[in-house]
Design a protein around this nucleic acid. Structure first.
Lengths: 249, 249
DNA sequence: CGATAAATTGAACTCTATCAATAGGTGTGG
DNA sequence: CCACACCTATTGATAGAGTTCAATTTATCG
């Protein structure tokens, strides 16, 4: 059973068996981290690279006045801080949203991985996708109203989680609070609540006890103006169907 | 006289003379591009890498309803599309804002550059800074009101342009319209206009015939909540003074 | 100098935030 | 098992920031 990192990187293209073995081996020594726990603080210079194996974490920054902006969700298969090889200090923080399983991979081990050309290319691809995602979030905050904005985010999570096998029958676990959603979308908690009700009322989503249900993903995509091209999944092993290679079940 | 690319990359660290020579040589064959001209369209798979030598260009995306979001300004020394080595197609467009001078560098030439370890590292650094900038813009859109938002953008441009020698006495050329500013900040043209007036009224900026004057950068930074750490200039040849190594003149 | 784009202003309207209160859930200690 | 504390979700009412529409003035450019 491949770990989520291997699974994600193979979306870019098939990996040599030896590479796959190396990647799978990296998931040993996992540790459980409770929800709402800081992994890395702004200003830190971590020596290990952290990888999420289960649960949701996030990148975020807290302003002087206490406002917080979350600018990425880290889901299983995502690296937290690959840039430590270049940058002197973190310019943002990383913390868990839900209880997570993580591994801390020593620099040397990561260098071993990036020494393998296929892995290096896949990691580069993954980094470019992260960057494209950031751009799409900017479009989301700049151009869409609250309801569309949240719909768009849910479409993205649906696809990203499906690509690591975490979606079943259009349902997936969304272990975050409405206030955290607000910090993600630049909205107040109250308004997030009302936007969610609007989505439910329109039958676009179901959301109960932190399980999100999307009865008709195409409808939600149309509503939120979601176009999956920025996730750059079309070149790899996935197909070009409207759902971007993701099928229920 | 080094070109702006060389100058920018040396902010990360001194380069071997031979590397510098290679980088400077890349600026031959420049061509002039008028304002508001498309360089690369979403969906394209460009074969050359484009570099800005003078003027302002931008990354942007236009939604189905005609709304546009600009998510990066490309100023002298910035590459437009280094990712063509990995991604199959552009997920956004690039166009000039002002008249620009650009060069199209063939893939092979770029590979020659990235074959030099010091250049490769500097380019990686530059890419990470671009990504951090994107995150900061997300904070800007998500958490700050219109006036602070614009103030923050101006502080960033001040520092970035100063780092390639384009700021004199707190003044620099800002060859973009208020409507483009609006597309950048997720604001209507009308509101941008009023926000600019507010900044002028407070004596935080002067802006006349596309020349921006910042009489007191520290005051503007405080107002906009600007912290230059995300531009990661502190590790290179610049100092740690409050202006991040940038001095008038 | 005329034509066109950009900047500016006013007024009405909308979306989102804020304040405040209530209800539901969960975990802890007794 | 209950009481309590605390956090999350929900609802109502009000205020504010930003948009939209429309008109006018000011630049800019051939």
């Amino acid at each position: 059973m491949p770990n989520p990192l291997t699974r994600k990187l193979e979306l870019f293209g098939e990996l040599p068996a030896e590479d796959r073995r190396l990647l799978d081996a990296v998931a040993t020594g996992r540790r459980s981290v409770p929800a709402k726990t800081s992994i890395i603080q702004e200003g830190d210079a971590p020596s290990d690279v952290h990888l999420v194996l289960s649960g949701f974490a996030c990148r975020s920054k807290v302003l002087a006045n206490g406002q917080r902006q979350i600018f990425a969700y880290l889901v299983p298969g995502d690296f937290c801080d690959l840039h430590i090889f270049i940058l002197k200090a973190m310019d943002h923080s990383i913390e868990t949203l839900s209880p997570c399983e993580m591994v801390a991979i020593p620099r040397a081990r990561v260098l071993e991985l990036t020494g393998r050309p296929a892995i290096a290319r896949a990691l580069w691809w993954s980094n470019l996708v992260d960057e494209a995602t950031l751009r799409e979030w900017l479009v989301n905050l700049g151009q869409r109203d609250a309801v569309q904005r949240i719909a768009h985010l849910f479409c993205e999570l649906h696809l990203r989680l499906a690509s690591v096998g975490l979606v079943r029958d259009g349902e997936f676990s969304l272990p975050i609070s409405q206030s955290e959603l607000g910090d993600t979308m630049g909205l107040s908690t109250v308004h997030v609540n009302r936007a969610l009700q609007s989505l439910r009322r329109q039958g676009l989503i179901g959301l109960e006890s932190h399980v999100l249900t999307i009865p008709d993903i195409d409808r939600l995509r149309k509503f939120g103006g979601f176009n999956p091209n920025y996730l750059h999944l079309e070149g790899g092993k996935t197909d070009r169907s409207p759902t971007g290679g993701v099928r229920p079940g």
